[in-house]
Nucleic acid binder design. Structure first.
Lengths: 223, 223
DNA sequence: CCCGGCTCTTTTGTATACCAAAAATAGATT
DNA sequence: AATCTATTTTTGGTATACAAAAGAGCCGGG
């Protein structure tokens, strides 16, 4: 499990540290509430403290850790409130994204990638590749936001998607089959340029995801 | 105009550099497209490069500068598209915030600070303190988001408010009197716990702000 | 036994000095 | 004039050092 960074790797060190720590948090190797010490991480990953600091700053930005002045960073404690807040904000932004995506498709934007993702998901479900199903589902949501064409929206949603990945890792999800059906309906609405329908479908799809996640998290939180 | 940091100032250096550069951008002292060199800033503000880097990172997060690998940061170029995207995302988030604020007030949350801000705005308009009017108007919007009680929403909106301050600095605004009237209506709806009305009023208030800003910016952009 | 204060240690935030490599720039050449 | 080349800047990163704050441990008193 040597996660040492190869010395000559022209991608930014900070980015790599960010990814590695994030992976650790999402995978549960860094438990909630654990302190992230700069020295510790810099030694573990064989980098100096500067890229570590940069990574931690970004982790804070994306809601995975909390930092306190002169006391450093700790992995955040996920609460049911966090999940509810996340779903509320997703409802705001992703429903708008779905509507805009439909509008832009109607205006001639090519939206083929959505269908592709659905096809891949079909395959992944049939092959029982659960990780891929989750990844493709997230990619589907991200693709809708991308289709909306609003760069600020894309930027604003990015931290939400990071959190979602985390939460879905902790609290397991409802039926992949059901979700794919909803995605298909939503995809058809968008590719058909039906803005209002896309909005409504996105809304109910996201809202349907809330309860199961809350239930799942409630169990992992207090066993 | 020596902006040197006093040596013994127990607020974080990075934070101060962030504020100073931000001030410079918003005030137009750093023009759009200008490069921000780390060495330059660190000498100007009498700090080392570390807090400067941290400040620049945060400025990028908040959409004021753009960084390119190995080429550093430049002050962003504001376009009409940026403004439109900003208003679209604001419509998503702030209307939701207004609705939630009303819901929470109806559920017993004290919302007195809104009325206070309106009173102060009244005074500021009468005294012709334009800067204060702008500041108070921004504070009014921020207070609604705060009242929504959704911490993730508050966090998500923060970078938007930063951009607004910048844009409003470049493109002047419509009548303060009209805006205050709209704020008052919205305030009454929220304090009366009328969620749907608050939503509608917030929507039209924000949307009414779009055109004037676009017009104003179009002029300053190509004279 | 618990509490308040007193060291001692750890960790952050920052400074300084330095380096490799990529960009920008100036200069030389065709 | 345009292109290739050499020189300087600038970034991204390392290593090391240090003051000051936070935390841990210890100690004595109620």
């Amino acid at each position: 499990m040597s996660e040492t960074l190869t010395a000559r790797d022209d991608e930014a060190r900070a980015e790599q540290v960010y990814q590695l720590v994030l992976e650790g948090i999402v995978a549960g190797r860094y438990e909630q509430g654990v302190r992230l010490r700069e020295r510790e991480l810099s030694e573990l990953y064989n980098v100096s403290r500067i890229p570590v600091r940069e990574a931690i700053q970004r982790l804070e930005q994306d809601g995975f850790v909390e930092t306190f002045p002169r006391r450093g960073a700790v992995v955040r404690q996920l609460t049911l409130t966090d999940v509810n807040e996340l779903f509320d904000v997703r409802l705001c932004l992703e429903t708008f994204a779905a509507r805009m995506a439909a509008v832009r498709v109607a205006a001639g934007e090519p939206g083929s990638r959505l269908q592709e993702l659905l096809d891949d998901t079909r395959q992944a479900i049939d092959d029982d590749r659960t990780d891929d199903v989750v990844r493709l589902s997230a990619a589907f949501h991200a693709e809708i936001v991308r289709l909306s064409g609003n760069r600020l929206l894309i930027e604003s949603v990015k931290p939400l998607f990071g959190r979602m990945r985390w939460i879905f890792g902790l609290a397991h999800n409802r039926s992949n089959e059901l979700q794919r059906d909803e995605h298909m309906e939503l995809c058809n609405a968008i590719l058909g340029g039906k803005a209002d329908l896309a909005y409504t479908l996105a809304y109910s799809h996201i809202e349907l995801g809330r309860e199961p996640v809350l239930m799942g998290l409630a169990q992992t939180l207090e066993p």
